[in-house]
Each structure stands twice: as structure tokens, then as C-alpha cells.
Amino acid sequence: MTALVGGVLLAAGVALFILEPVFSGRRAMRYGGDDDFDEGAARRRVALTALRDLEYDRATGKLDEEDYDALKLELSREALMHLGRDEDAGEGPGTEALRISRQLEDEIAQIRRAIRRGMQCVSCEHVNSIGARYCGRCGKRLITGAAPAGTSSDGAVS
């Protein structure tokens, strides 16, 4: 008997909970607030990861210079293409693409320079402007000038 009463209460509770939105008009969110995924963004991310992998593959000797250059050109072009896709139709696509192309090239160059000079923060990977001594995002001390061989900096990193 108690079980049956429990069952009825359970059924009533469940029904109330699942039917409440229909009666009250409460709605589920239709589009996510932080829903920033779009194919272009995903592709850009992939192209950038691929660029990073490319550097890694070169560093570990899986690619020689020739292939590296060819692939880098190809990947940069792809990254650009996906940038281009999002552009407003109103702007001249050619000039815009060129502008972004330069911008991206600049940034890649900057990142590579920064990495070489140790400007990329070791802990949060933020790329700092040249000359910085502390990371602009997390405040960790940057190891500048670590790239030349023979520089021992074990103690500086933690």
C-alpha cells in the first residue's frame, strides 16, 4: 500500500516537473549564448594547429625545407580562405583578403620571432610583445633570450 502511494506520488511529481514548461511557457534556450562555433572558426583553428604541427614536424626532422615551405604556403592559404569566407560581401574581397593575408603573415612572423626570443609565455602560451619581461596575461616572468644554445635556464622555469 505504501509502495503504491509512493508510486502515485512519484508519478505525480515526475508529470508535474516535465509538463510544467508546457503550462508555464518556460522555454529551453534555442541558441547558446557562448555558442561561437562555426565552421570557419573550426577550420581556422585546424589550420593554425596544422601550422604549429608543421613547425614541430620540421623541428623533429620529419619534413625537409622544401616540403616545409610548400606546405606552409598551402596551410597559410587555407587559413586565409577560411578567414575570407566570413567576410561581408560589401567589402572588396580581394583587398580584404590581401589585408588579412598580410596581417596573418605578420602575426605568424611575430609569433615565430617571439618563440625564438622566448616571448611566448611558457605557462599560458600568451605571445607577448617584444621587450616584455613579464607575461601580459598571467604575470609569469618571461625567459628572454633563451634560444641560443648553451643557455641554461632550468632554474628560471617552474
Binding site: 562555426d38 581556422r44 593554425l48 566570413d86 588579412i100 596573418l104
Partner: peptide, 25 residues
Amino acid sequence: AARVSAPAAVRRRSRPGPLPAAAAG
């Protein structure tokens, strides 16, 4: 995973305003 930071230009680009994708979905 910790988020990998993309170059600033790309971050700026990918930050959606009124997202066109939302209207299409």
C-alpha cells in the same frame, strides 16, 4: 585541455557579433 591561444587577428575575427550562424540554424 588548456585552451591554445590563437593569434590575435584570428581571435578577433572569430569572436562573433550577432552570429550569422545563429540566424541560419
